[in-house]
């Protein structure tokens, strides 16, 4: 696979555009709680802050490679080509939703665009990804499976069992541990033995004798390079790798958990709300991956400030239409609920 320095101007602009689309989509999800209360039910988890990591990873994919994320799953299908309108419609509980209103924010699925399912239970999707990789291995499809999960998932039994078995079976899977600093509401240095010791989480890979690499997840090109190497390795039959992609989750874990009829919204980030650490959050905002990539691409002459503005305006217009489409889509009829229990 080419290195990031060999990526074409068009590809870099595509990467920037996808990062902007994720950010704007998540902003519109968040605004919905204010502008259209009640339209989003349950719990929604946003991927703002993860844009560089998501796009850097997915830019390395071959067309048939699969992506299996956790419940924080809005960003990936946007990049994979799923209709943003159908994604928003799903989050808005509509019949035009990508899962017809059966799944919602935590369970987006679009197998036609290479994202079979997302599990809402922490860590379990890691095993599903390894299963997809086992199918690819048996059927000799040449696919690599991209398994995305958070730092919280890396404390689950499913993580340890699956990484061991994937290593034993040399499965074509890349495990991407998105270390966003928080396990739900809990700061990572309160719950992760490696973090408490000041060690990278990627060293968990040592337990399975597979490569483990930590990368700056706010730099899409750095992510691209380490994931390329891991994907090449997986495709060559050499087995899985563990990538720790470090970035900062810029929204709280999810919208506040309230009991109806109390309306729910996104509150301040846990850094401020729980830990009273405004400086930490301000530093994360200053290190915004989108701002950094924008400056880099202007700096190296990939595009001008005016070009970037044009992309950003285009994305804003796209997501405005996405919200309109989702709001206009009808709610499913109640009796639809008995479909799809059995195949």
């Amino acid at each position: 696979m080419p290195t990031s320095s060999q990526l074409s101007k068009e590809r870099l602009i595509w990467m920037y555009t996808q990062m902007c689309r994720i950010r704007e989509f998540e902003e519109r999800v968040k605004r919905t709680f204010v502008e259209h209360p009640g339209v989003i039910r349950g719990h929604a988890h946003l991927g703002d802050g993860a844009e560089a990591s998501i796009v850097g990873c997915l830019a390395t994919r071959h067309e048939e490679d699969l992506v299996m994320p956790s419940y924080r799953c809005h960003g990936y299908p946007l990049v994979l080509g799923t209709s943003a309108g159908k994604l928003m419609a799903e989050i808005y509980q509509r019949s035009d939703g990508v899962c017809k209103g059966f799944g919602g924010s935590m369970h987006l699925a679009d197998p036609a665009h290479h994202m079979p399912t997302a599990s809402g239970i922490i860590g379990q999707g890691i095993a599903h990804a390894a299963g997809a990789a086992y199918a690819a291995q048996v059927k000799k499809t040449g696919q690599v499976i991209y398994s995305f999960f958070g730092d919280g998932s890396s404390k689950q039994g499913a993580f340890f069992e699956t990484l061991n078995m994937a290593a034993v079976w040399k499965l074509p899977v890349v495990f991407i541990l998105e270390n966003n600093g928080y396990q739900a509401y809990t700061k990572i240095d309160l719950e992760d033995a490696n973090a408490m010791a000041g060690d990278p989480l990627s060293q968990k890979a040592k337990a399975f004798s597979i490569p483990g690499i930590t990368v700056d997840g706010t730099d899409p090109l750095a992510v691209y390079d380490v994931v390329s190497t891991a994907a090449d390795r997986a495709r060559a039959g050499q087995g899985p790798s563990l990538i720790e992609s470090k970035f900062y989750r810029m929204s709280p874990h999810g919208n506040a958990i309230t009991v109806p009829p109390v309306p729910t919204q996104f509150q301040e980030h846990e850094a401020i709300e729980v830990y009273g650490n405004k400086a930490e959050f301000a530093a994360a905002q200053a290190n915004d991956p989108i701002k950094k990539f924008r400056a880099k691409l202007i700096g190296n002459g990939t595009f001008t400030d005016a070009d970037a503005k044009k992309i950003e305006d285009g994305v804003k217009a796209e997501m405005e239409e996405v919200v309109k489409f989702a709001l206009a889509s009808p709610l499913p009829a109640g009796e639809e609920a008995v479909k799809y229990v059995y195949a």
């Binding site: 699969l66 299996m68 197998p111 079979p116 399912t117 379990q124 890691i126 095993a127 599903h128 990804a129 390894a130 299963g131 997809a132 990789a133 086992y134 199918a135 690819a136 048996v138 059927k139 039994g157 499913a158 069992e161 699956t162 061991n164 078995m165 034993v168 079976w169």
Partner: peptide, 24 residues
């Protein structure tokens, strides 16, 4: 098609679920 596994039921069953979705 025929394999021995470690004592890892979550992985064994989770891998079955993922593999089933991909045609096995």
């Amino acid at each position: 098609r025929v394999r021995i596994t470690p004592i890892s039921e979550t992985a064994e069953l989770g891998i079955a679920v993922g593999a089933a979705m991909q045609g096995l």
